[in-house]
């Protein structure tokens, strides 16, 4: 019952605050988990650093002190938390540069690639799902459903390999990898075109790989909504079929899709690892793939923390978007 002017805004504020607190707790968990993973499970980080190499015992002992590994777990944990908040994740074994600098320099490439693909796959997948559901059991539905399922069922990097061989190696329409032509001095529009030329295939790969999930979720969500009485009411009012679909059915069916989109944004950041490796796309994914070969543990640790933080952040965003879109969300 409506008692004050806008009771829902207060309820929503409380809801969002609650979600923020939850996210903070999750972040703490990830920090602890990360510590356990890298300091305790991996019982001898220095030993694994020099795995297979002949290093004097004295040097190892020095390093142990330098890394603070002789201290108690509590002291180590406290130091770790402090360093994490100072964005100090140590030095990469491979590049000998601070991990954070390495990560920061790789972020723009990944955000561009993943951002474009995430938006495109969400848009195309949702539209496909809407068409499939609204025309259920017609040839359109069958084509969209089976097509997206096939893309959904293949390893994304394998799709990338096929596209790369087909369009870059055989046809030569696109470069085989990287973000710009080697040694290019292009600027302005030419540089932009060069970038687009390079991002096309990896972005296509990720878009195709991810749109299946959106199409399937949108389809089943819309099918759920299609049985609702308010659609019969909308039809009875004399609305066109398209208007019934776009104004009444889709806004309700999209609520779960919005959540999925936001959550996926968090996950695709890390999901592009293998695809970036295939296209030598110099982003976080390729950095991860390279770090595995070491293994460059400080780098892996930093990336893992960043990926986790991204997921937590986008989950929170998903909750906020939901609260904003669905008037029924009220703190409860």
């Amino acid at each position: 019952m409506l008692t004050t002017e806008q009771p829902e805004s207060r309820g929503r504020t409380r809801f969002i605050l609650k979600k923020m607190l939850g996210s903070l707790l999750t972040l703490v968990f990830v920090l602890v988990f990360n510590f356990v993973l890298f300091r305790i499970v991996q019982s001898d980080p220095i030993g694994s650093l020099f795995r297979g190499r002949n290093v004097p015992a004295a040097k190892i002992a020095d390093l142990r002190t330098a890394f603070g590994l002789d201290e108690s777990l509590w002291v180590q944990f406290w130091a770790y938390v402090r360093q994490t908040f100072q964005l100090n994740f140590g030095i990469s074994y491979q590049s000998r540069q601070p991990v954070w600098n390495e990560i920061v320099s790789a972020i723009p490439a990944t955000v561009a690639l993943v951002g474009i693909s995430a938006v495109l796959s969400a848009l195309i997948g949702t539209v496909g799902g809407v068409i499939a559901a609204w025309r259920r059991n017609t040839w359109k539905d069958h084509a969209i459903t089976s097509g997206t399922m096939v893309f959904y069922s293949m390893p994304d990097f394998w799709l990338g390999m096929i596209l790369l061989v087909g369009f870059a190696v055989v046809l030569g329409w696109f470069p085989v990898g990287g973000m710009t032509d080697a040694g290019t001095s292009a600027t302005g529009v030419a540089l932009l075109l060069d970038r687009i030329h390079h991002i096309f295939l990896p972005a296509l790969t990720l878009t195709l790989a991810y749109l299946g999930e959106y199409a399937l979720v949108t389809r089943s969500s819309l099918l759920d909504v299609m049985g609702e009485d308010y659609l019969t009411v909308a039809r009875a009012k004399g609305l066109r079929d398209v208007v019934v679909r776009n104004k009444h059915a889709v806004p309700n069916a999209l609520l779960p899709v919005v959540t999925l989109t936001a959550i996926n944004f968090g996950f695709v950041l890390s999901g592009a690892i293998a695809v970036e490796a295939v296209f030598s796309w110099p982003g976080l994914g390729k950095a991860t793939a390279d770090a595995i070969r070491g293994p460059d543990l400080p780098m892996l640790q930093g990336l893992f923390l960043l990926f986790s933080a991204a997921v937590i952040f986008f989950n929170l965003l998903a909750d906020i978007a939901y609260a904003w879109l669905d008037p029924r969300v009220e703190g409860a």
Partner: peptide, 15 residues
């Protein structure tokens, strides 16, 4: 015009 049963979801929840 039809007056639908209000107990059901005859009203669009997001409008």
């Amino acid at each position: 015009a039809i007056v639908f049963q209000g107990a059901l979801h005859a009203l669009n929840p997001v409008q």
